[in-house]
Design a protein around this nucleic acid. Structure first.
Lengths: 229, 229
DNA sequence: TCCTTTTCTTACGAAATTATTACGTTTTTG
DNA sequence: CAAAAACGTAATAATTTCGTAAGAAAAGGA
């Protein structure tokens, strides 16, 4: 199931796009504000972005440019003005396609489909899509072992990182403390599952806004922990 | 220098396309016959293919399909009939773009350029292709194996250079010490990953302003090292 | 409400890992 | 061939991370 983010301030158009894309089986999220849209694009895990050029505050060009700093996700730019097309090209923003209003919904779907297919084709063996996990402002980048929490890096120790990665790789699954201990410390490690508690605590200290009211890692009483999504 | 193959049987059009693309610095090869074009596409090393739909004997659809069996090279399909576009899409041939005759030459160039850029972006380990790597005042010039740090040359030994190059070619990626050792000293080398530590130290001595507070090479505790960007 | 169990939280010493230095050996260079 | 440079090893110092324990707090059950 592919998920698409639409950044578009005209609600009527946005909803039209959404309805069409959803009817073709895509999961769609709407966002009317450019700044929030950019934030979402950077923090969440989408497969494609439909981006309106004309937005209040921060325009589509800038959003595109910023997304491209860290991601190769397909970006489809939507514009009412033909002149914008030259601009998109000229600036070398790295947009993957552009489509001018008014457009037929089936045109949109066709392009979305094509770009998703190509992206998959080209990134298949690189497994680029799996190299980071993005959930609600938390980004785990595996190659660099870095964790960003709302754009800011959290400096995790090795055990903390492994713990977080294991939990976040299986969202909502409850892990018993014993299992966490075994999978990270090793079966033959003679330690104690109580250690896990302390590391969870330290991890929360670093990634949770309020460690006593965790937003990411839930305690399941009498059992263990879970990464909530 | 990027090379482009044009498969097109109308000589006048083909030459027009060629002239334009060449004037933008691309190397262009023309091929009038579909079957030979397919053969070339499969056997030679092009960066992009401009493919006419209407060809005698074997048509563009079939050529596209066959190329896609073994290659992800960007394919731009050219057609005179609007109906063909739906067909290209519908068949899921994997063409990257289509352009209808008559088209302005600059339109062609713009699309070629965009697709080359995207392909590069998605497939590249960019650092591996380039002649030199430049990051924050550090320049690694591969052909000459020289390293400049803020305009001044750093005299690195062979091992130091290889270490730096490997790390800097994959910015931000964390390398385990064992992996560094294996990749530079060789798998069958009977040494110890501890020697990596010493070489990292010596490397830092030469490229870091304050080796105890490295700006380029981070230590990832319990894991290895990473070239930070 | 009170008691029991489980988790949270803190602090500190232990353990593990890396940084740094020194030195002897090997390789390269002049 | 001699001198210099590069390399690998080992020993020690410095630093970071880890594990444990113990009291506090929270959750669940009677």
């Amino acid at each position: 199931m592919k998920s698409i983010l639409i950044i578009e301030d005209e609600k009527a158009i946005a909803e039209l796009e959404r309805d069409y894309l959803e009817s073709y089986g895509y999961t769609v999220e709407l966002e009317g504000r450019g700044d929030i849209g950019l934030k979402k694009a950077l923090e969440e895990q989408y497969d494609l972005i439909v981006l309106d050029v004309m937005l209040p505050k921060i325009d589509g060009f800038e959003i595109c440019r910023q997304i491209r700093q860290t991601s190769n996700i397909p970006i489809l730019m939507v514009t009412a003005k033909k002149e914008d097309i030259d601009k998109i090209r000229g600036l070398g923003l790295g947009a993957d396609d552009y489509i001018t209003k008014p457009f037929s919904p089936s045109e949109l779907v066709a392009r979305v489909k094509a770009h998703l297919a190509r992206y998959e084709r080209l990134t298949a063996d690189k497994a680029e899509r799996d190299e980071s996990i993005r959930i609600r402002g938390l980004v785990i980048d595996k190659p660099s072992r870095r964790v960003m929490i709302h754009e800011k890096e959290a400096m995790l120790t090795s055990k903390e990182y492994e713990l977080l990665l294991l939990l976040a790789s299986h969202p909502n699954r409850v892990f018993e403390k014993e299992e966490l201990f075994e999978r990270i410390w090793g079966v033959d490690s003679n330690g104690d599952a109580a250690t896990v508690t302390v590391h969870i605590r330290r991890l929360r200290e670093k990634i949770e806004h309020d460690p006593s009211n965790p937003q990411y890692i839930d305690t399941i009483w009498g059992v263990g922990y879970r990464f909530k999504v």
